[in-house]
Simulated scan of single mutants.
Amino acid sequence: MAITLHFTKGHGTGNDFVLFTDPEGEIELTPTQIANICDRHFGVGADGIIRAVRSRSLPDGAAALEEDSAAEWFMDYHNADGSIAEMCGNGIRVYARYLLAEGLVHFADGDTLAIGTRGGVRDLQQGRNGFQVDLGRWKLDGGEPLVRAREVPVARPGLGISVGNPHVVVALADEAELDSADLSYIPIIEPSPEEGANVEFVVPRDPLVKDGIGRIRMRVHERGSGETLSCGTGAVAAALATRYWAGSAAPDQWRVDVPGGTVGVRMFPAEDGEHVSLSGPAELVYTGALELD
């Protein structure tokens, strides 16, 4: 039986998504359908799909409601290959913009919106230039594996960081090396993480710190999506890794330049430990409809 899927296309610094509303959790797209929709030649084209579903309407949402009863809406996110992902820093900002545009939530500047994800509940606030999301506690996780990437001359040590989803951050020698890396191929991580990981390649700006703000440039290969123009949680992981390498004098505010634009990262103390936030734009581009078997 065919269904008509009404969708919206959106992006955060070029990291793009297909979003649709399914409050009661009645539409279950298969991995093949998701991959076909995300295909940039034969489908709509996107780095992933986000389903707007009420937390009470799916099993993964129960944990979100237990954590915070205000998390009415759950971000059901799938990568472009159809695989499930825990969180997406750019995606959750675009999701908040979508919920507002569809009249599913109402909150003004300074208000907080709680959204359920498989990585936990995330709180967002709206500002003049987009949204800021508190990604919660972060941790060093995954050790320091070796990473091999096509057109990067030698294997480099990475730093494993979790911000609700897994990352390995790699420092490169200079911008020329960053530009030459061929991220159309999946970087090889040794030892390989059981669940895979996003891999960020980073170089410092010159100077690294200006007006009290750290500055880095990053490219990323996202697990399940390939190279993307931006990765929100990846930008956070890259800033955290650079601060870790730079030492105790490094700042807690960072500007991360990605191929699709610029996002901001801030580390700050909270009752349960240090949290990290991501800020940046979120745009809705167009709406459409698809006929699906």
Rank of each mutant, 00 (worst) to 15 (best):
Q126F: 06
G103W: 07
G110H: 14
G143Q: 08
R137G: 07
F131P: 12
E102G: 07
L124M: 09
Q126D: 03
Q126N: 05
L146T: 07
G103A: 05
F107H: 13
F107M: 12
Q132N: 10
L146M: 12
R150Q: 15
N129A: 11
V121R: 03
G103H: 07
L113G: 12
T117R: 04
N129P: 01
R118C: 03
G119C: 00
K139S: 14
G116I: 02
L124H: 10
V133R: 08
A108Y: 06
G130S: 08
R137I: 05
G143C: 06
K139E: 15
F131Y: 12
A114D: 05
W138H: 12
G119L: 04
V105C: 11
H106F: 10
L146V: 06
R150D: 15
E102D: 03
R148I: 09
T117L: 03
D123H: 15
G119I: 00
R122K: 15
L135D: 01
D123G: 02
G110K: 12
G136N: 01
V133K: 08
R122L: 15
V121I: 05
Q132L: 10
V152Y: 00
V152I: 14
L140W: 09
V147D: 06
G127L: 09
G130P: 11
L104I: 07
R118W: 05
K139A: 14
A108V: 08
G103L: 08
K139C: 13
D134A: 13
E102K: 15
D141A: 12
G136P: 02
G120H: 02
T117Q: 04
A114R: 05
E102T: 08
